[in-house]
């Protein structure tokens, strides 16, 4: 039915959840409970400043600096904080190293716990029910959908994140990367490889 008598020049109406966010924000700002400038800083930080590049630097340093690697295994939160990556959801980090014997993979079956300071905001697939259910039940099948094939004897260990503990996978250093400086190595490290759904290659 045509919208007779309706003014078509008005602004496009946002979706229901978007209107609800606006309503929440208006009321909370009006009550002085949140500051719009602080919200913008938070959005900009998580949109542009915090992300997998941080984690990639942790991985590259772990590959090239044995002392750092030891510290990372001993107390990942402290070792990562030394690189300046501190903040929410990164307070209790555990770094799990892939080896020819064991591949590590991270999931959060509770909600979507994720190490924000080193990986940023989780991708949609990490938050999907499909991944959350299947990562535990059939990790090998999930990995093959990500294009990951493991060594025949490599076991898979799936780590379930909690509100308290977050995991960072340290992928294996790829063949052919011998002698590469740390920043070039970091550029090889993908987000997925630090969740365990990818491998690093040259």
């Amino acid at each position: 039915m045509p919208h007779d008598g309706h003014d078509h020049s008005h602004s496009l109406l946002p979706s229901d959840p978007e209107l609800r966010v606006r309503a929440l924000e208006s009321i909370l700002v009006n009550k002085g409970l949140v500051d719009p400038a602080a919200l913008n800083v938070l959005i900009d930080t998580y949109e542009n400043k915090i992300g997998p590049k941080n984690g990639a630097r942790v991985v590259a340093k772990s590959w090239t600096d044995p002392e750092f690697r030891a510290r990372l295994q001993d107390d990942a939160s402290a070792a990562i904080a030394d690189l300046g990556y501190v903040g929410r959801q990164g307070e209790h980090m555990v770094a799990v190293e892939n080896t020819p014997e064991q591949h590590n993979m991270v999931v959060c079956t509770l909600c979507s716990c994720y190490p924000w300071p080193v990986l940023g905001i989780p991708p949609a697939w990490y938050k999907s029910d499909a991944y959350r259910a299947r990562a535990v039940r059939e990790p090998r099948a999930v990995l093959s959908e990500f294009g990951v094939s493991l060594l025949p004897d490599q076991k898979i260990r799936v780590w379930d994140s909690t509100a308290e503990i977050r995991y960072l996978v340290i992928p294996m250093r790829p063949e052919g990367s011998e002698g590469m400086p740390e920043d070039e190595l970091a550029a090889l490290v993908t987000r997925d490889s630090m969740i365990g759904t990818g491998l690093v290659s040259v």
Binding site: P17, E18, Y46, N48, I50, G51, G120, T190
Partner: peptide, 13 residues
Amino acid sequence: NTPTPPANFEAPW
């Protein structure tokens, strides 16, 4: 090697 995608939100809301 695929470049690491930027961390971001899929929609402003």
